[in-house]
Every structure is written in structure tokens, then in C-alpha cells.
Computed example of a mutant assay.
Amino acid sequence: MKPASSAVKGYRRLIPSVTALVEFEAVARLASFTLAAHELGVTQAAVSRQVKYLEDRLGVRLFHRLHRSITLTEEGEALYLVVAESMQKIAGVFDRLASGPAQQELVLAATSAFSQLRLLPRLAALRAAQPDLQLRLSTQMFTADLRHKEIDAAVRFGAGSWSDGSSTLLFDEEVFPVCSRRWLETHESPVTLDALANAPLIESDSTSEGWMTWDEWFRTLGFRPAQLNFALRCTLYTDAIQASRHGQGIALGWGRLVHDFIAAGDLVRLPLASFRTRDAYYIVVPHGRTITPAIEGLIDGLRQDAPGDQ
């Protein structure tokens, strides 16, 4: 059904320049006129003119122009959210129609800890359930910014509310001490928090997602040790877990991530205190993208054995 001519005229009156909207979206997403010009293959002056044209037509400022950076104004943020969502929908339809009926590649962002310890062990089951799934992992050190990456979905740990996407709960989390059977064969198992604080601990750096350190874990339990005995400090959580598997000491076990190692006997959960976090794991889909059957299947696959895996 073709739109009425009056509607077309209305769109043209209210949206005077699609080019200006495209260039505004690039500037807002990249937070830079220079980067937007490079991406679009035009001059910075041309991009500036298009944004200024929009501001003049709307009668509002879209950006705060600072000395070395720009940020969206309240009006600019409102326009960006709508424009970005609309452009992503249009791009998605073009991509699907141009590529035919074959399954599109799904780009999933996750931390290395989640991808290595939770996702990859379940990849075979995911492929069995979705034979056409084409997955590309985008491994992130910290939380991925969905506005700046070509990402279809991201796994995040947090409260479930983010400004750049809509979230679906995967599962909750519990944190407790773990070590290897090899370590227990040569060391006395700590039976109190004080004894645990003096045992050889393996530390990993906290992340922007709110993962806790040993000190934070003890404090959540109301225990403040005078000193912690660190046998090893690691930047990555995966290194800390591997070190614990190889008998180097006791690490903090994030239950959803170390479940497979515990089930296989590579790690042992020490019968001490544990802390159930208020935050949880979520799949986050950028605003404007649809939760496709592939993403729904990914969610189901990642939830596999989650209810009783701790």
C-alpha cells in the first residue's frame, strides 16, 4: 500500500534532510566531527554544516561543543536515540534482503571470562540447536558500548538497566572460594574466614561490571581482615582461575563461570561462606535491533543447565 501524497509531503516538511540526519547520527555515535567525516568520506566542514543546518531548522543546540570534545545536549540525545534506532532498523532490512534467506552472522560481545568459561563450553550445544548459527565473538576487556560497535547483542553483568539497549535476564550469580584438589592434598583446608584470609589467595582485578575483589568479598560478609595473603595477582579473571586449577592457591569462584570446572573435579568449592550478588547476567540488545530467533536461541543456550548448575 502506497502512502498518501499528503503524508509524503508531511515527511518532507518535518524531515528536511535525510543526509543531515545521517551525518548527525555519525557525529553523535562517534562523539567526533572528525571521525564522522572520515567514516562518511566527506570533509569535516561538510559535516559541521549539516549539523548546523539541523540545529537551525529545529531551533535547538544538538551538541555541547567543548574545547577538545563534544557531548549531546538533552535535545540531541532525544534525537539521536530515535535516529539511531530508525537507521539500524532500515540497515537491518537492507542487509537481510541483500543477503537472502541465509542466516546472518550474529556478533556477540562478552568479556573473555564469560566467553571462555561459559559460552565456549556450550558452543557445540548451541550449534546443534541452531545449525545455521554464524557467531562472531567480540571479546571485551570491559563493558561494551553498544553505540560505538557493530554488535547485535552483548552479555553484561549488572542491575539490568542500560541506556544503550534493552536487556533480558540470563541468570543470577553467587561468589565463593575455590581451589584445586591438588592444593587440598598439600594444604589444610581453611575452616574460618580468618584462616581463609591467611591462606594463599589468588587475586584478579575488578572490572567496570562490578566484579569484586577478595577484599570486597570479605567486606560483604562483614569481615575485615587486617591483611590478606596474596600468592598471585592477575589482571584477568581467567588467569586467576587457571592458576587455581593448577594448585597455586584459592581464587574467588563466580559460580556460573566455574560450574564446569567444579562438575569436572578440576576445582573444589570450599565449604565456607558465599555471597549471592544483587547483580546478574543479562543479554543486552542495542536499541533499534530486534530480538531475532537467533538471539532467542542464544539466550536459551546460555541458560542451559543454569537453574541447578551451582
Score class of each variant (00 low, 15 high):
residue 14 L to N: 11
residue 74 E to K: 15
residue 228 L to N: 11
residue 255 G to W: 08
residue 177 P to C: 07
residue 20 A to Y: 08
residue 33 F to A: 12
residue 63 F to M: 11
residue 209 E to C: 13
residue 227 Q to E: 14
residue 87 M to R: 11
residue 261 F to L: 08
residue 84 A to K: 08
residue 160 G to R: 11
residue 265 G to S: 09
residue 156 R to L: 10
residue 188 E to I: 09
residue 290 T to K: 14
residue 233 R to Q: 09
residue 2 K to G: 09
residue 141 M to G: 07
residue 45 A to C: 00
residue 234 C to G: 10
residue 177 P to A: 04
residue 108 L to N: 00
residue 127 R to N: 12
residue 147 R to E: 08
residue 303 R to Q: 14
residue 226 A to N: 08
residue 38 H to V: 15
residue 139 T to M: 15
residue 120 L to T: 05
residue 65 R to W: 07
residue 31 A to Y: 01
residue 164 D to H: 03
residue 129 A to F: 02
residue 76 G to K: 00
residue 102 A to N: 08
residue 216 E to Q: 12
residue 53 Y to H: 08
residue 141 M to K: 04
residue 135 L to I: 14
residue 133 L to M: 04
residue 226 A to E: 10
residue 104 Q to W: 06
residue 234 C to S: 04
residue 3 P to K: 07
residue 299 I to K: 01
residue 47 V to P: 02
residue 184 L to F: 05
residue 199 A to F: 02
residue 10 G to L: 07
residue 9 K to D: 15
residue 99 S to Q: 15
residue 67 H to W: 07
residue 192 T to Y: 02
residue 133 L to S: 01
residue 164 D to S: 08
residue 269 R to P: 09
residue 125 A to N: 05
residue 186 T to S: 14
residue 93 V to G: 02
residue 188 E to F: 04
residue 163 S to D: 06
residue 226 A to M: 14
residue 218 F to N: 03
residue 136 R to P: 03
residue 20 A to R: 05
residue 21 L to N: 02
residue 153 A to L: 02
residue 238 T to F: 01
residue 85 E to F: 01
residue 201 L to W: 05
residue 63 F to V: 05
